Simulated scan of single mutants.
Amino acid sequence: MQQFARLHTDKGAVPVILKGTEHLDLRPIVSDISADSIAGGALIDVDTSRLSPIGGDFTYLAPIDGVRQIAATGFNYKKHIEEFKMKPPTEPEVFLKAMTSLTGPFDPISRGGDDGVKLDWETELAIVLGRETTNISAAEAADHIFGYVCINDISDRATQVDKEGQQHLVRAKSRPTYSPIGPYLTTGIDAMKLDVWTKLNGRFEQQGNTSDMLFGVHEMVAYFSSHMTLLPGDVIATGTPPGVGFGKNRFMAIGDVLECGITGLGAQRHDIRS
Rank of each mutant, 00 (worst) to 15 (best):
V161H: 05
K248C: 04
N201P: 11
Y178W: 11
I254E: 15
Y184L: 13
V217Q: 02
E259V: 08
L265I: 12
S179F: 11
P183Y: 07
V244N: 02
D195M: 15
I181L: 08
G202M: 09
V161W: 11
P180G: 03
S174M: 05
G243H: 02
H218A: 09
G266M: 10
G245I: 07
F224H: 05
Y184H: 09
P183I: 12
P242L: 08
G261E: 01
V257C: 14
F246Y: 15
H270S: 07
A172S: 12
S174Y: 03
T240L: 04
T198Y: 08
S225K: 10
G208F: 03
E259W: 05
F215I: 10
T187N: 04
L185K: 04
N249V: 00
Q206A: 09
G239V: 03
T198N: 10
Y178V: 13
G216Y: 00
V257N: 14
P176Y: 10
Q167A: 10
D212Q: 09
D256Q: 08
H270I: 07
A253R: 12
M252G: 02
I189F: 12
T177Y: 09
L214K: 08
T263L: 12
S174N: 01
K199N: 10
Q166A: 00
V196G: 08
N201R: 00
Y178C: 07
L169E: 04
T210L: 04
T263S: 15
P180Q: 02
G233E: 02
R175M: 09
R250Q: 14
D195N: 15
A172M: 06
A172C: 01
T186E: 00
M252K: 03
V217L: 01
P232V: 14
G264Q: 06
P176F: 07
M220G: 06
H168I: 01
M228W: 09
R250L: 14
L169R: 09
G261C: 10
C260T: 14
V257A: 10
G182Q: 03
L265T: 12
Q207G: 02
I189M: 12
L214Y: 03
